[in-house]
């Protein structure tokens, strides 16, 4: 496979995973902003998913419609869903002969949907949940089409490598920002705070089933980092990343493979052999930052050994 094609598939996939993360986060935070909880602020969302400065974030912190517009349809915000989808589509466009026609059409439709002026208008006037749901479903259509139609070749491996690397980074980010927002105070027991955090990463129901004794910050960390069955956990993401990377093993390029395989294996082991206690002992922030760094290093190595074409 052409290096350029692998690169484009990888980024198409990362952008789509990011889109899904942003949309879910917005949807739940919107619900939370309508709930009767103390001091709701959009700041953490803006910190995780955009480059807006402190002043801008403070200004928007309590203006729900402004945040939605900024995060979804703003053309100036390079991390708005509109711009991310545009980039995902540009990547897909340049590899149309490597993804199925259905997948391309699905992404292309997503692009036309999000650029529709009416959608922007409705986002300002109508029920935002309905609008976000339209977009989330368009994303799910992408994931489903990918699963049902794409051949399980090298391209599929790169798509999944991008997806799980992005997801790992995202989960670490979300956890870190949410905890920093309450100064890593593990004694905080505000039930709604944890509930909305878990809802935003689709982990609420699993939490209820796993921990029957109410909300505990430690358990939230445990599930988000260490639960192997939780598809948004860092452990799961690292595992999948490894699984799909292993498919690239072949006759040629063995040295590069071994190098990156070692890096990913190390991340996986690092997470697998952590406990909540060991994480807290070295500090949650330090721990999550370390994981994020390691994941970024994998991205850089992939770029160097597999995607370099210019």
């Amino acid at each position: 496979m052409l290096s350029r094609v692998a690169d484009s598939l990888y980024w198409m996939s990362r952008y789509m995973e990011r889109t899904d993360g942003i949309l879910r986060m917005l949807r739940i935070n919107y619900a939370s902003s309508q709930d009767d909880i103390q001091e709701f602020s959009w700041k953490p969302v803006l910190r995780i998913f955009s480059y807006v400065d402190e002043e801008g974030a403070t200004k928007m912190a309590h203006n729900t419609r402004a945040v939605l517009q900024y995060m979804v349809t703003d053309r100036e915000n390079s991390n708005s869903v509109l711009n991310i989808i545009t980039r995902a589509r540009e990547n897909a466009r340049s590899v149309q002969d490597h993804i199925t026609k259905e997948l391309w059409q699905c992404l292309n439709d997503f692009y036309h949907t999000i650029r529709d002026e009416k959608l922007n208008h409705d986002l300002q006037r109508e029920d935002p949940i309905s609008i976000l749901d339209i977009l989330i479903k368009q994303g799910l259509l992408y994931f489903g089409t990918l699963d049902v139609t794409m051949a399980r070749g090298e391209g599929y491996a790169f798509i999944n490598i991008g997806k799980y690397l992005e997801r790992g980074v995202q989960s670490a980010d979300i956890l870190d920002v949410k905890f920093s927002d309450m100064n890593y105070d593990f004694t905080k027991t505000d039930t709604t705070y944890w509930k909305y955090l878990l809802l935003s990463i689709s982990g609420y129901e699993l939490y209820l089933k796993t921990y029957r004794s109410g909300f505990d910050a430690k358990n939230v960390v445990e599930q988000t980092v260490l639960n192997e069955d939780f598809p948004r956990s860092i452990l799961y993401s690292a595992g999948q990343l490894h699984r799909y990377f292993e498919r690239l093993k072949g006759e040629r390029n063995q040295e590069a493979f071994r190098h990156i395989d070692f890096m990913i294996g190390k991340i996986k082991s690092k997470v697998r052999y952590s406990t909540v206690e060991s994480i807290m002992a070295q500090g949650l922030h330090t721990y999550l930052n370390g994981i994020k760094d390691d994941l970024y290093q994998v991205g850089i190595a992939l770029n160097q050994h597999y995607f370099a074409y210019t």
Binding site: L2, R4, V5, Q96, D97, E154, N253, Y309
Partner: peptide, 24 residues
């Protein structure tokens, strides 16, 4: 069912044309 390449995907070595793939 063939590759779509751009100029930057190709390189010449010893008067032969090669494309840059993930496996060399």
């Amino acid at each position: 069912g063939v590759e779509l390449v751009e100029g930057r995907d190709l390189v010449i070595d010893n008067h032969r044309v090669y494309m840059k793939t993930t496996a060399g």
